[in-house]
């Protein structure tokens, strides 16, 4: 049996509280506030205390999906990414880079925002990239 406590940043508001996800045999079973963290100091709000709950929700998406004749079908990662790359490059070719837009996310990491931004600017060739800071 393995029981680990993994220090991480709360996925909700911008305060930046940290907590430990308690992981028993590969499953996130609970949240323990981090007492030494400079922002949260051992406390959390109700969202933080329950931040493990949606992780294992059975409604989570687990397979790449492509809509074929109006219905989603499960496909392999290779198929999903090949198809996505092909369609994006086709659009770039046909109607130009600025006919495509990227919506990044304040719920993703810095690294992920950087990569989406780089994909937009460096690969598609458009500055049409934004996120919901305004919303």
């Amino acid at each position: 049996m393995n029981c680990d406590f993994v220090l991480t940043t709360c996925p909700y508001c911008g305060c930046g509280c940290n907590f430990y996800l308690q992981v028993i045999d590969g499953k996130a079973v609970g949240v323990v506030p981090c007492k030494t963290h400079p922002v949260s100091k051992g406390t959390l709000c109700i969202k933080g205390w329950n931040a493990h709950q949606f992780v294992h929700d059975e409604k989570r998406l687990t397979k790449p999906l492509i809509k074929k004749s109006g219905r989603f079908e499960e496909v392999s990662w290779d198929e999903a990414l090949d198809y996505t790359a092909k369609r994006m490059l086709e659009i770039k070719e046909k109607t130009g880079p600025d006919s495509f837009g990227f919506l990044s996310s304040a719920k993703c990491t810095n690294e992920e925002n950087y990569l989406l931004m780089k994909l937009s600017r460096g690969v598609m060739g458009t500055n049409n990239v934004d996120h919901c800071a305004r919303l």
Binding site: T9, C10, P11, Y12, C13, G14, G16, F102, S104, S105, A106, K107, C108, T109, N110, N113, Y114, L116, M117, N127, N128, V129, D130, H131, C132, A133
Partner: peptide
């Protein structure tokens, strides 16, 4: 005050036009 855990980061990382 930023409303989501990484709004600041998304701005910092250039997810802006």
């Amino acid at each position: 005050l930023r409303g989501q855990n990484n709004v600041q980061g998304a701005c910092d990382l250039g997810a802006l036009p």
